[in-house]
Nucleic acid binder design. Structure first.
Lengths: 313, 313
DNA sequence: CCCATCGATGCGACAAGCGAATGTCTAGCA
DNA sequence: TGCTAGACATTCGCTTGTCGCATCGATGGG
């Protein structure tokens, strides 16, 4: 096989530092010529490489040139273990970076708002862990603005957020996951329970149960678009408690589609007919300008899949 | 001061691997521009250096480019500790090599024949340890041919040997230390004791005490050159025992100058008048072709000094 | 005593990588 | 809203490090 000329412009596949490889190869074989063959170089290149290394080290020879090959000097014997440990570290770095690249390592820190944790996130997370078991995942729960702050601060790689009102597009990259329709939760024996889909306006006079006394920025925001201001009869934050209030006939409440599956049987869910924009959109947000880890990319893809399945259902 | 153009041909003073320094400097300052200033480069060089490093690492960005500087990505955060440990190892190697170069470290393995240990070697060794306290010294005692074998095998860096007959010049480098004159040891009450220097021929009929039954290759070799074959009456190897035999009047023996100082008072030493070549020469031998460590060089110099002092005395 | 082997070196060529200048993008400000 | 400053990216020309090839000198073995 003819020697391939001038292939030294090929970038090192890993981090290797040329003289390290050369030095260790020569030390291993005790011969410039053999080392050159191993490296796919000529003997002269190895000779000069070692020579310049010795020069850079203050002129101390690393090898004794014997008539049959070479032999480590004391200086070379000192350098050798360091060279070994350096190559070991470099290979370690290479391995770890490769693992990161294939999302087979590293970490993923994400956050999600509460109702996303009802179905979307667990589903995506299960699939993700199955596919990338070696990624260390940490999860936070929080409200959209809190999560976005955490994202900006660099404490999160990705956040599953919802637009409740104006979308804060500014320093974030929003990846649309799904548009969420709303349900009205009423007691099973409520007059509307059997009627199917309803317009929100039909409930303008109902007692509402909400997480906040003011409808702005909550799901009830949708009511404002229907030109009525809902009367909040009870302020109840916790979802399970809310259901209790509804079941007891104390009022009605809005339920996002993501939480629809986890509703107790004595409550009826009526789809909301809303000719305007859908109640809210769910996005995966990432910090603009900050590169997403491969694990993050993979999780984002998994979120999209999960969202697609939920949309289909 | 005008920037000095194109000084990148200056060989690295230490082992640094360019991209390592650049990467760490950028990581430390969070800015290509500042890192460039620190390195004495231009910003473009840093940019390209990082870029090609990222390319070599599989295309994963190491930094996020923000409008105000840069920031480590996850990949960069993985690489950083490895880079630190690599530079640490390289600096460690540099330090240790520097120590070796200044004979402030490393090891020195030497051997010497027995009588050299009477004065020459201890004197040199004391001075050497005072000057180079951090060199680990190991010492062997043995006969010249044994020491030379150990030298060839690479178990010794240096051997203090004497020429008893033909000098085996072949694979050794011999550094002449001193020429040793001989003394005849006789009982203090011996007829010759008061006469001062004697010719060896005067003792042709004496009873000799020697370490070997045959004079060849021992100090008695000198007698052969005086054309008489000494009668070996007693074979005694140990030096103290030999003195006992002489003091008891059982015979006479030859004493090398190096051992002259450690003779018991009831024995008289008579300088040997020898018109031929001196009885034997003492050399420091090193393996030819094998480079001597700085510690070895220093010890060799110290041996020369000690030899000079002994010659003067 | 000649020859095989191994490292060192001169030569020509190629590209890696520098500096300098310029382009592009963003943030802050009036 | 347009302007300016700061920061990284890119292009161009040129120096220089380093390769392969060919050859030399030294050293042992047959």
């Amino acid at each position: 096989m003819a020697a391939m000329p001038n292939q030294h412009h090929v970038t090192d596949p890993d981090l290797s530092t040329v003289w390290l490889r050369v030095f260790l190869e020569v030390a291993r074989h005790g011969s410039f010529t053999v080392a050159a063959r191993t490296l796919g170089w000529t003997q002269s290149a190895v000779s000069r490489q070692i020579s310049s290394l010795e020069g850079a080290l203050g002129g101390a020879p690393l090898f004794d040139r014997l008539p049959r090959g070479v032999r480590l000097t004391e200086a070379g014997r000192i350098l050798a273990p360091y060279a070994e440990s350096v190559t070991e570290a470099l290979h370690g770095a290479g391995r770890e970076l490769a693992a990161l690249r294939e999302a087979a390592g590293g970490r993923l820190r994400f956050g999600a708002f509460a109702t996303a944790d009802a179905a979307l996130v667990p589903q995506a997370l299960a699939a993700f862990r199955a596919r990338h078991p070696r990624v260390r995942v940490s999860r936070e729960e929080g409200l959209t603005p809190v999560l976005l702050d955490r994202l900006t601060a660099g404490h999160l790689d990705l956040a599953v957020v919802s637009t409740t009102g104006g979308a804060p597009l500014e320093p974030y990259e929003l990846h649309h996951l799904l548009d969420e329709s709303l349900y009205v939760a009423v007691p099973a024996d409520h007059p509307l329970a059997a009627q199917g889909p309803v317009r929100l306006a039909r409930l303008a006079d109902a007692d509402w149960i909400s997480g906040s006394p003011r409808p702005e920025g909550t799901l009830l925001d949708a009511a404002l678009r229907q030109d009525f201001r809902p009367r909040v009869a009870h302020v109840v934050g916790e979802w399970t408690a809310k259901q209790g209030y509804v079941a007891a006939g104390l009022g009605v409440t809005l339920v996002p589609a993501l939480a629809a599956a986890s509703v107790r049987p004595d409550i009826a869910l009526l789809p909301v007919l809303d000719e305007g924009a859908p109640a809210r959109a769910v996005y995966a947000a990432t910090a603009r300008g900050r590169s997403l880890t491969p694990a993050g990319e993979a999780f984002l893809a998994t979120l999209r899949e999960a969202a697609g399945q939920l949309r289909g259902a």
